[in-house]
Design a protein around this nucleic acid. Structure first.
Lengths: 138, 138
DNA sequence: CTAGGTGCAAATCATTTGCCGGGGC
DNA sequence: GCCCCGGCAAATGATTTGCACCTAG
């Protein structure tokens, strides 16, 4: 754990949100003005693969990271791309049961799932009168 | 619906799998040797937004497309990236109940979810004796 | 004629990598 | 000295876009 890596790690923990690599870069740069994007990416990769942080790959757009490595789901805002945590418990049991019932778990080597909720964050909801949610047409 | 668009559409329907843009491009090029990647992308975008095909954005790597627009889930192979359909029904009810029970559905504008199973496809399982699944350590 | 669609090539954007120099052991 | 790491800049790879042309209505 080098100094740079430590700072990257600390900043992610401090942010509590789900920042993109360049948001992290900006933060870190305030403490280490000479750090480069390459270093940030390298360290994010290392931190993620050692399990200290979590790398989130939302459909499309860039990766995001978080300090919360507990197993949980996310809510992604279609509008601004912000990610929030969804406070529901992991569905492993529900899904395992479903998969087992279908006899598929043994056929496929399934050992994980990713569940992502799609919606609008509070800020974007507030701004929106004009937004038509898909499938909301009454 | 131009000729090129029609061909792109037809090839996707024929493929039944979950091809990437360049797999589609290769196929289409056999019928329209002069077509360009740009055109393929443009038409994939148009077909997807008109609902004729489905654009899949698996975490990381490139986008994939499918002709099956019915609501369903996918199983992504970590090894080769191939996508298969998961034959379980959409969990809307389960998830709506969970979200409602938590009183969150009203706070967040959630109107969709994406569930992706992570595993190994049959081909990759066959090749693997050496692969250690995360969390499989008995 | 007009608009949209195409082919081509160049641009974009996030991410990765090569290279070299430096610090710790 | 050896190695890992960081800074920098250039490379990569998927996707997008600008532009000029063309073709159908």
């Amino acid at each position: 754990m080098t100094h740079q890596r430590q700072v990257v790690f600390e900043e992610i923990l401090k942010m509590k949100s789900h920042p993109t690599a360049d948001e992290i870069y900006e933060r870190v740069r305030k403490r280490l003005p000479k750090i480069s994007m390459g270093t940030v990416y390298r360290n994010l990769e290392i931190l993620a693969s050692s399990g200290l942080i979590n790398k989130i790959e939302p459909g499309h757009s860039q990766m995001r990271f978080e300090g919360n490595v507990r197993d949980h789901y996310h809510i992604t805002c279609i509008r601004c791309g912000k990610i929030e945590d969804a406070e529901i418990e992991p569905l492993d049991d529900t899904l395992l049961n479903l998969e087992n019932a279908l006899g598929r778990l043994t056929k496929h080597g399934i050992f994980a799932h990713k569940l992502e909720f799609i919606g609008l964050c509070k800020a974007c909801r507030a701004k929106e009168g004009d937004f038509i949610e898909p499938g909301e047409d009454d």
